[in-house]
């Protein structure tokens, strides 16, 4: 493994952010807030782990595949999360009781 110190630092930061995302999924009160925490933290956490794999293996088959996987995750994770948010809103899941405003409902009526 090349450069083990950098690899351990990258992977431990990534794992910490993954855990924070999972914790947010449990603690936050409604679907939309949970999606926020889960998308942001888990995307960055997984990308950091995969960058750690790139640093560990260098430019060979494994490193290139890890880099491609990181790009895929960075691209598809926000897209999937706003598809889910739109689906949840159209299915009629209410916002948390402490929410301030819902312009989407006012404008589209669904």
């Amino acid at each position: 493994m090349n450069n083990p110190v950098a690899v351990y630092i990258l992977i431990s930061i990534g794992v910490v952010f993954d855990l924070v995302g999972a914790l947010g999924l449990i603690r936050l009160p409604d679907v939309y807030n949970r999606l926020q925490a889960a998308t942001k933290c888990v995307t960055l956490g997984t990308c950091l782990i995969l960058v750690g794999v790139v640093v560990a293996s260098g430019w060979n088959a494994m490193g290139i595949k890890a880099l491609l996987a990181a790009v895929f995750v960075l691209w598809t994770s926000p897209t999937g999360s706003h598809a889910l948010a739109r689906g949840a809103h159209i299915a009629g899941v209410p916002l948390w009781a402490g929410s301030v405003v819902d312009k989407y409902k006012e404008d589209t009526g669904r």
Binding site: Y32, A37, L95
Partner: peptide, 12 residues
């Protein structure tokens, strides 16, 4: 997430 009082004020 780690703040004990959850300081959020959500809205669309």
């Amino acid at each position: 997430v780690l703040h004990p009082n959850l300081p959020i004020r959500p809205g669309i």
